[in-house]
Design a binder for these strands. Structure first.
Lengths: 244, 244
DNA sequence: CGGAATGTTGAACCGTTTCAAACGGAGTGG
DNA sequence: CCACTCCGTTTGAAACGGTTCAACATTCCG
């Protein structure tokens, strides 16, 4: 199952390299990690609240989301993972998961045992560092989400999320007229933004009416990137991503 | 300035040990890190958005908070640091800070150069691991804050924050009748909870009226821990803290 | 002591929620 | 190929939680 190692783990290594220097030996070592390739239907759980997490996963293809459910049964989506991202470093050193990770679409996932990753991290400080850096960027995104949910109105919140996803999906540069997949229902958007699905509907329609986005079949087109950025008050700095 | 090394860095080492095994040699090594002890007035900046972070800090005494300001000038407090906590691991591998850290009270801070910490982390995998684990717990707290801000009403939000602070300040067990310092203005509470100061006022008064808390002089007494926990829907699991 | 910052309260307003109903598209079975 | 169902989207109207604005009381601090 490890024949084409480099191609499946490349996103993980690239993500690491994005925020922290990774030497070619590190690359080689990381590329040799044993992993398993699996496919999941849309809606499958990749991690369940209460589980003991024992593996990391790279989303080779597909979207996933991370969510917590309160004692009262209220759900908050706390992050969205896009193709090529690692979705499970957030639980690397914890005995019990405190949230769920669920697929939004059919996904192909390369899973790596925590033990394997920790072993390399123990041998190679730069890998340990890269894991930390990746987690720190997740934390920065979480801070921006708190600001978004806590302090912006529905319209800004929604356009801010669209900006973030477009920017991440396009790795740091979004041309006007760009289209991207957004495989989330309006209920899921509501759970991500702290709003009701009904209000998400009205808000998205408002953005469409004002020509800020075009919305069809779970994909979003941004006719004018600058206009949406202004609407959202979006500043990509928190993503700590160097534009390509 | 390093005479009484163990006493000032102990909180850092203890925090590490809380989530990840730290051997006695690691302890000794960490205890030998060079650091500087400084005092800050209430309201001082420990880190400014845009700065290049070069040092970590341990809050030997005093409270601090972390906040982001949006393009429109809206402020969101994204975490509160209590005495004994490390306040700066969240920027360890980033070139530029994306938020501010400011003191709530007069603070004594032990600062450690990032270089010194990274050097030990490079030599000692368990230290690298402890840094990661600490950051991962911060991330878990951030997730709960997103849930709190996004999905709970003002009354639950406010009592949830009180529960969290009481629980962290008391290291995992809060007896009924417990009193703790909460050196935050109502405006700051509002910025932490995504509410206006006026509404914080009404909410806190409501909690007082219903006997869930007693509030005087920036300190909070919890007459009945179980009652406040129920009101807030608080479950301490996300803090990943073993009760003492 | 005086001035600034913080806390308190009321009343009007508004963004979002709630409830309810209808619509549309995709998939399924007869 | 139609009828049926399921799920997500859309829309309207009323209700509500939280905001805004404004005024005043209190505490803090130089």
């Amino acid at each position: 199952m490890n024949k084409d190692v480099a191609s499946h783990l490349t996103p993980l290594i690239d993500r690491f390299a994005l925020h922290s220097p990774i030497s070619s030996e590190d690359r080689a070592e990381l590329g040799k990690m044993p992993y398993k390739l699996r496919s999941y239907e849309a809606g499958s759980y990749l991690l369940r609240d209460g589980d003991a997490p024992v593996q990391c996963g790279v989303l080779v293809s597909g979207f996933a989301y991370r969510h917590r459910v309160s004692a009262a049964g209220l759900r908050q989506i706390v992050s969205v993972s896009i193709p090529g991202e690692v979705y499970d470093l957030q639980q690397l050193h914890l005995a019990t998961a405190d949230h769920n990770v669920q697929t939004l679409t059919r996904c192909t996932v390369a899973t790596i045992a925590h033990a394997a990753l920790l072993e390399i991290a123990a041998k190679r400080p730069s890998v340990a560092r890269a894991i930390s850096a990746t987690t720190i960027v997740d934390l920065s995104i979480a801070r921006e989400w708190m600001l978004n949910i806590g302090r912006r109105d529905a319209r800004m919140r929604t356009s801010h999320l669209f900006c973030e996803l477009a920017f991440r999906l396009n790795r740091g540069s979004v041309p006007s007229g760009h289209t991207f997949d957004l495989p989330m229902t309006q209920e899921q958007l509501g759970d991500a933004l702290g709003l009701t699905p009904v209000h998400i509907n009205r808000t998205v329609r408002g953005l469409v009416k004002d020509g800020l986005i075009v919305n069809s079949h779970r994909s979003i087109t941004i006719p004018n990137w600058g206009a949406l950025v202004d609407e959202a008050g979006f500043n990509s700095r928190y993503l700590h991503m160097v534009p390509i």
